[in-house]
Design a protein around this nucleic acid. Structure first.
Length: 701
DNA sequence: GCAAGGTC
């Protein structure tokens, strides 16, 4: 039977209710549950669920948005750049989502007509206030002036009830204006500069190409470019470490034990030689034993980003793919809602039932049966929490559908992690033993696990030997090992997101999207993200004309201005006047140098050889076609094959910063790469330039 | 077309 207490024949039939506006459907449901002790009623109105209940004699109607329903638009009527005329309009994308968003706006418009009170219940942050302000202003006809505000930071019954008993009389208009200013600044800078770059490109090449830049894209591109330059100009300087082997007896058998010299990096070879010389003929004597306990807890529950990290590490699935797969698993009811930051599991979940259901999966039977023997099942909990959703866990439901290979992988990851949460921590002892050989200290550690568990998460179990202070050992061998400083690692999608987090640019819900955008623009590419020539040209250009947009400073400065708006120390108008003034200067300079900038960017989209070959030192020993040339910037220099520019040859290596470089007459015997000869600290130095040359891995001297 | 920010 159809329930028609709220809505009938396209009309709202209730009157004089309080309309509660939430940011997302999940929040509306949780509020209805909390305030009504689960006695709320629901009805579908224009495709959305609306909740109705009586709370302390008040008739509440609770509806929800879907994040932002309105966005900023720059007027296209303004033909000259920069464009400053803007307006707020409903979001309409030519996708299914637009339909939902339009119906959300229509729903709220409909519900607002007969409401006598408006209560804003969006998330408690700047964007939440902005989302609510815009809905109240545009969909509810200027009700931002009279709307009340409920403030809760978790969606628990206690917090929600508390918020409704201590309602604020007004929404925070200043915070909303600060949020709206953020939208305007991002739109103004992003669209105008992007457009100006695209036009510069066009003016030189007569071709259209979408070039984009923004407050978050800028620094993100710059991180990758900077990192790549560091990798390319990295100088693999050598350093030395020293190992000694002492004779020990164990169960009547004589074996050698490796002990390491305390200083792990010796910069001067002379120093290493000296130590070895001085140790000759000496015995190793135990001078100190540090005894410590250790405890390794099981891992914490998966939130989305930890799941994405694990999936990338194990299967090279990028964060996007993992989210897509997790969403499919969620729709098949195999796992809980995946878009969550939480690392906690609520006690209301029946762990035993889920585990016993999972035991039907043959690959998990052994672990589940062991867990089911336990009297009490208590999972570990992580630190992070999320208002709306718990961490990701398997529901214990089985599917009749066949899972794809990758779906199966992600599902198994989630199950494995869930089962690990109930394992016991691993407890043990670790001893750090100090040996004196002459006046030098060498170290060795040993670990003993106290309780054996069936857990997989610790495999180290070094044999524990009972050593005594002042015990003496023969030193059978002592030698040094040559190592090379390694270059910084290239970014991947996970580490780039981490870098953005660390620098505080973007938000958790936009970072992955923005990385995808700069991949789509051909600024970065590959699993190991590498900057393209286009990105490098773009960074060079912007460093001259708009360095601020390449730096996380722009976010810092903007946040400071927004805070001042929020605290009424300044106004939106003042901030926007300053911003538009700066922007006008930037656009003017870009336009003045249109052709130059266009040429630079256009050339970078072609695989042009950037170096002329008349400074060739020799023919490349690998591809036999290209010329070996030296490239340099202010700080570093590198030797490259001219064919490495279009990636048809791999020869590319950093060079020492100082000294004359000559190509050595013979190439490397191991890898065939060119060798060079230079003078290093007064001595001639001949070495293979290949940073990955097998001969460099662990050369024993 | 172009940004960044919500949420599905």
């Amino acid at each position: 039977m159809k329930n028609t207490y709220l809505y009938e024949n396209n009309k709202i039939i209730k009157k004089d209710y309080s309309l509660v506006i939430c940011e997302k459907p999940e929040a509306a449901r949780k509020i209805a549950e909390a305030l009504s002790n689960n006695t709320y009623r629901t009805q579908k109105v224009t495709d959305s669920i609306v909740f109705n209940l009586n709370y302390k004699g008040k008739e509440l109607v609770i509806c929800s948005a879907l994040g932002h329903l309105y966005k900023i638009n720059l007027a296209k009527t303004q033909s000259k750049l920069p464009r400053f005329d803007y307006s707020w309009t409903p979001i309409n994308k030519p996708k299914n989502k637009a339909v939902i968003i339009n119906s959300k706006i229509n729903l709220i418009k409909l519900l607002s007509k007969d409401a006598k009170e408006f209560i804003l219940a969006c998330d408690l942050d700047q964007e939440g206030e902005t989302i609510g302000y815009n809905i109240l202003k545009y969909a509810c006809n200027e009700k931002q002036k009279i709307a009340k505000r409920v403030k809760f930071s978790t969606l628990t019954e206690k917090d929600i009830k508390n918020a409704f008993s201590n309602m604020e009389k007004h929404i925070d208009i200043d915070l909303a204006i600060a949020g709206r200013t953020r939208h305007v600044i991002d739109c103004m800078y992003g669209i105008n500069i992007s457009k100006a770059l695209s036009l510069a490109f066009m003016s030189y090449s007569n071709k259209y190409r979408t070039l984009s830049i923004g407050r978050v894209q800028g620094p993100t591109i710059a991180y990758v470019v900077e990192n790549d330059l560091q990798i390319e100009t990295h100088v693999p300087l050598p350093f030395w470490s020293i190992n000694a082997y002492i004779e020990t007896t164990e169960n009547g058998k004589t074996t050698w034990l490796k002990i390491k010299y305390k200083k792990e990096k010796i910069i001067e070879k002379k120093e290493a030689n000296n130590i070895i010389k001085n140790c000759k003929g000496e015995k190793a004597i135990i001078s100190k034993i540090n005894k410590n306990n250790f405890k390794i807890n099981p891992p914490v529950p998966f939130n989305l980003s930890e799941l994405q990290k694990k999936a990338f590490k194990l299967y090279k699935l990028n964060p996007y793919q993992t989210l897509n797969i997790a969403e499919k698993l969620y729709l098949k009811a195999l796992i809980s809602y995946p878009r969550t930051a939480s690392q906690k599991l609520p006690t209301s979940i029946n762990y035993r039932k889920i585990i016993s259901n999972l035991s039907k999966l043959p690959e998990f039977t052994r672990i589940t049966n062991n867990l089911l023997k336990k009297k009490k099942l208590t999972p570990t909990q992580g630190k992070m929490s999320d208002n709306a959703h718990p961490s990701i866990y398997p529901t214990g439901k089985m599917t009749k559908f066949q899972l794809s290979n990758t779906e199966k992988k992600i599902f198994n990851l989630i199950v494995t992690r869930f089962l690990e949460l109930f394992e016991k921590p691993i407890i043990g002892k670790i001893n750090l033993i100090h040996f004196n050989i002459g006046k030098y200290i060498f170290l060795s550690s040993s670990k003993k696990i106290k309780k054996e568990t069936n857990s997989k998460h610790n495999k180290e179990n070094k044999k524990h030997v009972n050593f005594q202070i002042a015990e003496k050992f023969n030193v059978k061998r002592i030698r040094m090992e040559e190592n090379f400083e390694t270059a910084p690692r290239p970014f991947n999608q996970i580490t780039l997101i981490e870098k953005m987090e660390k620098e505080n640019v973007g938000t958790k819900s936009t970072r992955a999207n923005i990385i995808q955008t700069i991949i789509d623009r051909a600024y970065i590419k590959g699993t190991k993200l590498k900057s393209t020539h286009l990105a490098r040209a773009l960074v060079e250009v912007l460093q001259i004309y708009s360095p601020l947009i390449l730096s996380s400073e722009m976010t810092r400065k903007m946040e400071k201005q927004l805070e001042e708006i929020e605290n009424r120390k300044t106004t939106q108008e003042k901030v926007l006047t300053i911003s538009s003034k700066n922007l006008r200067l930037i656009i003017k300079e870009i336009q003045k140098n249109n052709i130059l900038i266009g040429k630079k960017l256009f050339s970078a989209t072609k695989n042009l050889v950037i170096q002329s070959t008349n400074n060739s030192l020799a023919k490349c020993t690998i591809c036999k076609k290209g010329d070996l040339i030296i490239t340099s910037n202010s700080r570093n220099r590198a030797l490259i094959c001219s064919n490495s520019v279009n990636e048809s040859c791999i020869v590319k290596a950093s060079l020492p910063r100082f000294g004359l470089i000559k190509i050595y007459k013979k190439s490397c015997m191991t890898c065939l790469w060119p060798k060079i000869k230079t003078v290093f600290k007064g001595n001639p130095w001949i070495f293979c330039i290949n940073p990955d040359c097998p001969s460099k891995r662990k050369r024993k001297l």
